[in-house]
Design a binder for these strands. Structure first.
Length: 111
DNA sequence: GGGTTGACCAATG
DNA sequence: TCATTGGCCAACC
């Protein structure tokens, strides 16, 4: 598969995540149907700047080791359910039970 | 061609 | 809740 095609597939899926919801790297990997979670993570680090990357979190609901402050601002703005702002240790985590989204449409774009 | 690294995941203590 | 362990896949020295 062309690397570019894989990247586009991942980015397309990320854009399908509605505001106020989040999904995980592993879920994206399965939705794309190829490669593993780490592959998705790498794609995000390379092309994440073009998509709402803050809607992609780790399986436990914590954010990537980078940009947690910025992501928190987006969550506040979109109304994404989060758990305790945490004691100054950075950001709290996402309330996965309420915010998790995994209802992707298998095929990339269209219409 | 082979070892290291990484925006990962799940299980365990 | 955090740390550790083993496994995963591709990119990068």
């Amino acid at each position: 598969m062309d690397p570019d095609a894989y990247v586009e597939a991942v980015l397309t899926l990320v854009e399908q995540v509605p505001p106020g919801r989040v999904t995980t790297y592993g879920t994206l990997a399965e939705a794309v149907g190829y490669g593993g979670p780490r592959r998705v993570g790498r794609v995000m680090s390379t092309h994440g700047g073009s998509v709402p990357w803050w809607r992609v979190v780790r399986a436990d609901g914590s954010l990537p080791p980078s940009h947690d402050d910025e992501a928190r601002a987006h969550y506040a703005e979109e109304g994404t359910p989060t758990r305790s702002p945490a004691r100054g240790h950075g950001i709290g985590r996402i309330d996965m039970a309420a915010a998790y989204f995994g209802d992707f449409t298998p095929s990339p774009p269209r219409p």
